[in-house]
Amino acid sequence: MIEDIGFWFSYLTNGKHLTWYASFQFTIFAALMGGALAVIFGLAGATMKNSRFMPLRLVGSIYSSIVRGVPDVLFFLFFPLAFEQAVEWVVATQVCSPEAIAAQTAAWPPCREANWFLGTTEYLLLASVSLGLVYGAFATNVIHGALRSVPAGQLEAARAYGMSHSQVLWRIHVRQMWVYALPGLSNVWMLIIKATSLLSLLQIADIVLWADRLGAPNFLPAVGLVHEDWRWRYYLVLFVFYILVTWLSEKGFEAIMRRVGKGILSEARA
């Protein structure tokens, strides 16, 4: 019995498992960073949509309508690659000598000096930006609607007392907007959390990739413990992780709602 516990403990703390546990940080980082960026893009998009300046309004509307329609998996594949190659192209116009271009045998990049090697950190940042861009389009719509829900009379009062446009926007409009935006933003947040399971698409060794590797059947004693297909057990751990995150998020959103809803929500009375 004791031996069994000892065996499983050492198995579950072997190098591969520790790497798996560590990879949870990628998922959590991508979710938090993607979520923060989505809110920032959402605020920017919504203010653009509300702008009095036509071209900005157009940009805001195009962003929220087109990006929402693109499948997130596709965008996830497209954006980091497009970004990488765009950077390489710009770098190439600066650093590539004609000889270097002539010497280059591969189709891309134009010369070896222009090659940009992306590691996990870079991919993680690009993944976060992709998440931010895709879900920022949803957040744009949510925030746009929430901004309209703030009672116009309160904004008028702020203007009538001499507040500047930015004071009205930040001290009254955006401050009250959260109450109306939070339910929608919590949906967006849940979608972002789900989308973090796509990180392995960007060659990040994330929790899904490791669960797959560790659970795969092994018949070679030299490689490690011989076992059959255990993937479902590892997937189950991921289920539990995601449910836990969901539960924590709900708690978090409730706390934020209580805070920003003070005086506005009827629950805040008494």
């Binding site: 009672p151 009379g153 309160q154 008028e156 009062a157 702020a158 203007r159 009538a160 007392y161 001499g162 009254i172 401050r175 009250q176 920003v260 003070k262 005086g263 506005i264």
Partner: peptide, 17 residues
């Protein structure tokens, strides 16, 4: 000028938050 004009509205328009 507005910061010296004290306006009182029909619907109060106090800032709810």
């Amino acid at each position: 000028i507005r910061s010296e004009l004290g306006m009182v509205f029909q619907s109060f328009n106090l800032w709810a938050h």
